[in-house]
Design a protein around this nucleic acid. Structure first.
Lengths: 154, 154
DNA sequence: CTGCTTGCAAAGGATTTGCACCTTA
DNA sequence: TAAGGTGCAAATCCTTTGCAAGCAG
């Protein structure tokens, strides 16, 4: 149990500890926001996150969601995800470089580790051909997750 | 020469022809917008495009830029480009599936053809491992173009 | 207690819409 | 001359900021 009287997942507890050691305070609104996004397998935009977190902490303001996301992003706990229909969605971040696999129907997200060797070779050859000095890369796959394939068959 | 009394590049002429055959009219404001973006190697956001196109057609309104971009995107002549600092930039599209190489300093964009075979193999293995049915992919590289590397050395 | 946090309200910025006028075909 | 296109102004939508009151530490 914690100060808001609700159970917190272990992921939330870890995130809150990280925020704490970065000098931020532990407050009930923050706990509510963290608890939702730390445990979501789906992309969440600020409004959706707000709607869900408000079920835990009804006095929550949308502004606090934006401010909390800002701090979580700064601590590397969440990352913003760009996709064809917008760029305001967030998902829990992972350590190290990983690529994203996104369901276009339900927004479920999964990470996969790109083939580092092939990727390196590709970047090397593009760099040679173009004269660019490459610093970063994005690789994202879009499709239908297993659940959505199943429900589409109905 | 054309109805606005200015020279048009061959790329613009082709684009305008495509708009025409899609049922849209050829107007001076549209020509101004098309002439800028059809010939740019750099990402352009609506405001920048507006500023440049207004030098050709001063009475242009920003709204017309938005409406023209909408039609160009719909015809597959431009594509929206997402990058870490925003998603409101556009660039001339190419036929077939190509990947993007973007200069983080000057916004120059270049297309490169991903290694289709490796990419296919990667998607196949991710698909197997995740159960996702993959429909689309994004591959973008970010770095410094040759010009920007040179000017950074000064 | 002190200063970080919060929620509200207002400000901002980007994009879209309503509308009367204008231009293309 | 009919239908589509244009620019202005206003409306929207999303996000950020200012501020007084509320809490964490």
């Amino acid at each position: 149990m914690n100060r808001s009287g609700t159970q917190l997942s272990s992921a939330s507890q870890r995130w809150l500890k990280e925020l704490r050691s970065a000098g931020y305070r532990l407050t009930a609104p923050r706990q509510a926001v963290v608890e939702i996004i730390a445990n979501s397998e789906f992309l969440l935009d600020p409004q959706t996150l707000y709607d869900r977190a408000r079920r835990r902490y009804p006095r929550l303001g949308l502004v606090t969601v934006y401010r909390t996301l800002e701090k979580l992003e700064e601590q590397g706990l969440v990352q913003r995800v760009h996709h064809p229909d917008g760029c305001q969605a967030f998902i829990a971040a992972v350590n190290g470089h990983q690529h994203l696999l996104i369901c276009q129907r339900c927004n479920r997200v999964q990470y996969f580790s790109g083939d580092g060797e092939r990727m390196g070779a590709l970047m090397e050859s593009v760099s040679q051909a173009s004269g660019y000095q490459i610093q970063e890369h994005w690789l994202q796959l879009f499709g239908l997750c297993a659940d959505c394939q199943a429900s589409a068959e109905q």
